[in-house]
C-alpha cells in the first residue's frame, strides 16, 4: 500500500491553546440556543398535530410504486435496471415472456414478480431515475407504516 504523508497544518499559538476556539464555539451554540428560546427559529414539526399534507414539497420521495399506462397495462418491461441500480438491493424482479396470444405480445417481456422489500428501501429514487419506461415512481405518501391486520 502506498503511504501518503499528510501535511498537518501549522497551528498558531491561539489555536494550540484551544481556548479561543472553545469560547468561539460556546458563543455559537449559545447563539443557537437563544434563537430557539426566543422562538425565532422553527424547524421541527409537531407531527401528529401538524402535518405536511398541505405543502408537501415537489421533491418529496415516498414509497416506490409501479404505474400503468393509458391502456391500463403495467408499464414495466422488467429490464431490471432498477434492480441493478438499487443501492440497498431492495428490488427483486422475475421476468417472463408475454405469451403470444396476449394483446400486448409485441412488448415481449413483462415482470412475473416485482418485489420491493420496503424494509430495505431507502427512498433514494434511483429506480425512478433509471427507469427507461417511466414505469416506477416514488409516491408522495409518507405515513406508510402500519399494523398487522
Amino acid at each position: 500500500m502506498a503511504t501518503v504523508t499528510v501535511q498537518r497544518p501549522k497551528l498558531s499559538l491561539a489555536e494550540k491553546l484551544f481556548l479561543p476556539g472553545v469560547l468561539k464555539g460556546l458563543a455559537i451554540t449559545l447563539g443557537h440556543a437563544l434563537r430557539m428560546l426566543r422562538g425565532q427559529k422553527k424547524v421541527t414539526m409537531q407531527y401528529p398535530e401538524e402535518r405536511w399534507d398541505a405543502n408537501l414539497p415537489e421533491h418529496y420521495r415516498g414509497a416506490p410504486a409501479l404505474v400503468t399506462d393509458e391502456h391500463g397495462r403495467e408499464r414495466c418491461v422488467s429490464c431490471q435496471l432498477c434492480e441493478f441500480i438499487c443501492p440497498p438491493r431492495a428490488i427483486t424482479i422475475v421476468p417472463e415472456e408475454i405469451p403470444g396470444d396476449d394483446q400486448w405480445a409485441k412488448v415481449e417481456k413483462q415482470p412475473k414478480a416485482f418485489e420491493i422489500d420496503m424494509i430495505r428501501c431507502i427512498y433514494c429514487g434511483m429506480c425512478e431515475e433509471v427507469c427507461p419506461e417511466q414505469a416506477i415512481f416514488l409516491r408522495k405518501d409518507y405515513a406508510i407504516t402500519g399494523t398487522l391486520p
Binding site: 451554540t29 449559545l30 443557537h32 440556543a33 434563537r35 430557539m36 428560546l37 427559529k41 424547524v43 421541527t44
Partner: peptide
Amino acid sequence: RFLAIIQDRI
C-alpha cells in the same frame, strides 16, 4: 432539552 435547543431542535 438544552442540547436540543442548541441544535435547533425541541
